[in-house]
Design a protein around this nucleic acid. Structure first.
Lengths: 111, 111
DNA sequence: GGCTGACAAGTAGCGTTGCTACTTATGAAG
DNA sequence: CTTCATAAGTAGCAACGCTACTTGTCAGCC
């Protein structure tokens, strides 16, 4: 998938991934890649800052732990994050319907 | 609709609107508003620069005319623009499917 | 005549966002 | 001893759309 097309929807994706359970940053990247069949392969420079943004906003909370000598920061959805996710979903629905109205009806769509 | 969510898809919308026929800037804004039932009410500061971008890229061509003493710049899709639109449509399809996989299946979707 | 509002186009400057490229560090495999 | 997967991070950049503003004509109203 064309990169940098996520604009404005990355936060929603991160919240959606964390909805299924707490994960650390690296695992989030892998979850996004897996659940999108490889379409979404985001660099660390994209998601680490995004996670800190979400934490500053109070939508996720992080806890450090050491696994096999490697430092891990595990992120978890907060209540605020769950509410934000609901809003993002509503926003996505409206956005995709609206844009789809212009881009989905291709000039030659068969029945 | 939440503003600035268009990120990356505005060009596609403009091309899609012009696909149905040449329009001038102001009319494009109205067409977007009409076809989206008012969801898309873009300010002139958004679309005029965007149109110039598209013209620089060769996707649209403009011609000036004077109607009722008012200057109009009418934009028209070029062949390159038509090709770009096809690409944007394909990109949108992939994007909406991918993001939708995370945001459409809400945890409590009834049958 | 003077005012307001719709029509029509434009620019300057800002803030957000995601990306590229880079650094640091551990453990396993060769 | 080097390379690769795991794990986290930062600095700086470029793109995008928005706010706020300017310029100008024409129609309708008082």
């Amino acid at each position: 998938m064309k990169a940098q097309a996520l604009h404005g929807h990355l936060d929603a994706l991160l919240l959606a991934v964390l909805e299924r359970g707490a994960l650390h940053g690296y695992a989030i990247i892998e979850a996004l890649r897996a659940r999108s069949d490889g379409s979404l392969d985001l660099p660390t420079g994209t998601i680490y800052p995004a996670l800190r943004r979400l934490e500053r906003a109070g939508h996720v909370a992080s806890t450090w732990s050491t696994v096999n000598g490697r430092e891990r920061r595990t992120y978890e959805l907060t209540d605020s994050g769950r509410r934000a996710l609901a809003g993002e979903r509503a926003g996505w629905r409206e956005f995709s319907i609206t844009v789809g109205r212009f881009l989905d009806d291709s000039p030659a769509t068969p029945a």
